[in-house]
Write a protein that binds this DNA or RNA. Structure first.
Lengths: 93, 93
DNA sequence: CAGTATCCAAAAGGATACTG
DNA sequence: CAGTATCCTTTTGGATACTG
């Protein structure tokens, strides 16, 4: 589990989902530089750890939304603090 | 920088140093399972990012101590919260 | 749109042996 | 004691093309 959160993309993806559910393409744009393969794998790992849910809406075109679970929401708190620290320390360093 | 903290061993090493300076061998025992090579590399990266200091004492046998810098200490706060979350969530999951 | 497949490079991790 | 050297495996990341 620590292995999972101790991952740049996982931490950023959870951060992106803090404000609400997002679709694959939206996540891809928010997480600049991530390739579809890596994003896909990252989301699967997060889903396997029960940090996010994957919901498919039977529409045309298909819509898939990713959202934080309660566990994921609880994880987002310390993760946000870590991201905030990084951002703050950039100015220092 | 996020890449650095987003790393299992880095996060654990900083946690180990929270209580005070430690020597290489002490860190090695505390971070169970880490190999000397990986520990060495981890410490070098942390030192390069100015999160820890490496001090060599001219004794026989040689003594080398690693300690958190102010920056490292400030990083240890969010990292500890993350580790605490992981520990708490283990019981839940 | 939401991925998967393929190929590949780079980084991280791990075991073990050896050295100043 | 405090590492470094070597070898090898696993993980992660990244580009690009393709599909249900």
């Amino acid at each position: 589990m620590l292995d999972l959160l101790a991952n740049k993309w996982s931490a950023l993806a959870i951060g992106a989902l803090e404000a609400g559910p997002l679709r694959f393409g939206q996540l891809r744009r928010l997480l600049e530089g991530i390739s579809p393969k890596v994003l896909s794998h990252t989301l699967k790992r997060l889903e396997a750890e029960d940090l996010i849910t994957r919901t498919v809406y039977a529409e045309v075109p298909a819509r898939v939304e990713y959202a934080l679970t309660d566990l994921g929401t609880s994880a987002s708190i310390p993760l946000k603090q870590l991201r905030d620290w990084v951002e703050a320390s950039v100015g220092v360093a």
